[in-house]
Design a protein around this nucleic acid. Structure first.
Lengths: 338, 338
DNA sequence: TTGAAAGCGCTAACAA
DNA sequence: TTGTTAGCGCTTTCAA
């Protein structure tokens, strides 16, 4: 509180210690031998003056900042519902926690397309849930910034600096479970966001249905809909004569409302209608009945992505292919008959 | 993908456009009149070359980075349990979301004390849940970095750039509720972290008890304990002859285990023992019975803190006193008799 | 309306 | 072992 916050530079320290500024620099970095006496004089001067190095100057000079960026792509990540917030908070929190552990700064990159936004110095950037041919990936690559993605760009699945989710395995397991519980007509309510999550889960549903020689039904529901709007769609579907006896909702935000629609129509869950969702949240856990959901395992995604990024920044070889981890299937009462 | 990531500087753009570098700078910033023709030539050259300004150079020159830092003080925020993670993820996520909305970069500051860590350029810093006389606050202030705190430093409650929680009101309401439900002997299991949360809630408990002429019992449980260790303490307490008939656990991590202990001892919750906690989490919501909890309202804390910070950075006057918001009391079955 | 040039604070190459 | 100095890329003052 006492010190006037006048900015102390390396030159002030050098003057005070009676040495050259390069000596001060080296005394801090240890990048060349300094006599004990000099080093101590320098460090004391720095301490007395309250010196701390200017990170911008250092970055400008060295070309590195020690900061990694994080971009959350899904449009509805920010403006979304509490459920969506939960999902993305988990990812952000986990990435932050991992980076803290590794002593590297993590910066949330606001909007990389908007030039009015303060650009930010970063050595690398983690992009979460990219879109197909995501322009942010293209832009970052153009800028020469090393990128690691959480989930692959669905149009560029070959990019090796990525950690992916094994949707075919887990979504198939979910569908098998529904079948075992007696579902005959499974409908999928998919989203409009063109990312790996929507694409791969849809593909898996179609492939699984083809394998089982089952007819399919895919309804598209924008992630931007209100629950009421989503309910309207679900209601229309459930009122049909040959209505599905199981529905898989992509976002858990719409799964609990779907259960509400079922109740309203007098359809018992799970006996007359099973409901599952492809993300998990408070909403699905506490609905009545609790809703079966696939959890994207953001904690593990984050951990792996950070590892990958730090490896990349320290010059590791490009991996042969993306790292694959598994989502977690949480079976609950909404799909368990009898 | 095609462009070799050679770094384009303002000089390259100036050369290409056939103007001076200062003209390029002004063409971008608009800080002095430029002829239409020149401006367009410059912008085209920049576009063609794929120029983007170096943020470190800009910060070095202007002294501002457009980045705000975030420091989470509680020791157990990072290494903690899933519950703790939930709590802090909510805060981090909310702050990040708010900053995104305001188009300002947010950086997670790793360890401000550790000099080996890359220092980071920030115009201001939000410090969440500071300790009493928190050295991080002191250090940031010494460095001349404007600080806003989420919760006050309990030893320096007079610092006005803060958003605080009205613990006396809500904790008293909780205790009143317990009393109305028939609790005669309420014990508090407080934490060891010396922050406003522990301090103020403890003070409120003691003051409330004094007002009601009730005897008090405060047990101290480190936030670093495992649930098993915490259970041991709770068990010992509940085995006593004159055991409490209501316990308030500071962290929700230990509240659900406490319910486990009650079950083990054959004590019915809430009829023979009421349980409440001073943070909320998945754990408390889904315990059986669900546990009454005070929610710190991290979303609102974050929103207000960000507003305060941006105000401070744009030169707003120092407020007369800290902003006060209310925690939310979630009453659940663990404290509702009959 | 534009250009030239100083200099932000630091690191590293080169000299002594 | 230490000092001198160029220059990282930008903004801004001063001149033209």
């Amino acid at each position: 509180m006492s010190t006037p916050a006048a900015k102390i530079t390396i030159r002030d320290v050098a003057d005070r210690a009676g040495v050259a500024i390069s000596t001060v620099s080296h005394a801090f970095s240890g990048s060349r031998p300094i006599s004990r006496a000099t080093r101590e004089r320098v460090l004391r001067a720095a301490r007395e003056l309250g010196y701390d190095p200017n990170p911008s100057a250092r970055s400008l000079r060295t070309g590195r900042s020690g900061i990694v960026g994080l971009v959350l792509r899904p449009r509805y990540a920010v403006t979304g519902t509490p459920d969506r917030a939960e999902t993305f908070n988990r990812l952000v929190g986990s990435v932050a926690t991992e980076m803290l552990r590794r002593k590297t700064g993590l910066i949330h990159v606001p909007d990389i397309d908007d030039p009015s936004v303060a650009r930010v110095p970063m050595d690398g950037c983690i992009v979460a849930h990219p879109y197909g041919n995501d322009p942010v990936l293209t832009e970052l690559t153009r800028r020469g910034i090393p990128v690691v993605t959480v989930e692959e760009d669905p149009e560029r699945p070959e990019l090796p600096w990525a950690v992916r989710l094994d949707y075919p395995k887990v979504v198939s397991a979910l569908l098998d479970h529904l079948r075992e519980q007696g579902a005959r007509r499974i409908a999928l309510f998919t989203g409009t966001e063109d990312n790996a999550w929507n694409r791969r889960t849809r593909e898996t549903y179609l492939a699984w249905s083809a394998r089982r020689r089952r007819s399919t039904r895919v309804e598209v529901l924008s992630e931007g809909l209100t629950p009421e709007e989503a309910m309207r769609e679900v209601r229309a579907c459930l009122r049909e004569r040959r209505r599905p006896d199981a529905i898989v909702m992509a976002t858990s935000d719409f799964a609990a409302p779907a259960a509400g629609v079922a109740a309203e129509l007098g359809l018992h869950v799970p006996d007359e209608l099973m409901i599952a969702s492809l993300t998990d949240s408070e909403h699905s856990r506490t609905a009545s009945p609790p809703i079966t959901a696939m959890d994207l395992n953001h904690e593990l995604l984050a951990e792996r992505a950070v590892e990958l990024m730090l490896a990349r920044l320290s010059g590791a070889d490009e991996p042969a292919e993306a790292l694959v981890i598994e989502p977690v299937l949480n079976l609950r009462a909404s799909t368990r008959r009898g």
